[in-house]
């Protein structure tokens, strides 16, 4: 599983955020576009791309995109 592909997948669910801002260390919650719908999209993307059931608490306990990536990797 590739972090760069994951970052690309994450950038794809966003509509108003410059892909340059999407890095391993990005604190996704601080993105202006982050809201409950983005969270649902992240869950749907994890399901579609990695067949992983990400939960609300997984997101809550994560800070950076790398944290999310690690959770997906562990669940895959």
């Amino acid at each position: 599983m590739e972090i760069n592909i994951f970052l690309q997948n994450f950038a794809d669910i966003l509509d108003d955020t410059d892909a340059i801002l999407i890095k391993q260390e990005t604190v996704f919650r601080d993105l202006e576009e982050w809201d409950s719908l983005t969270a649902l999209s992240l869950i749907a993307m994890a399901d579609e791309e990695y067949s992983v059931k990400l939960t609300g608490d997984d997101i809550k306990s994560s800070t950076s995109l790398n944290d999310i990536f690690e959770i997906i990797k562990n669940k895959a």
Partner: peptide
């Protein structure tokens, strides 16, 4: 619902 939103939310 707690699958997609945190307990806190």
């Amino acid at each position: 619902a707690s699958d997609v939103v945190s307990q806190e939310e």
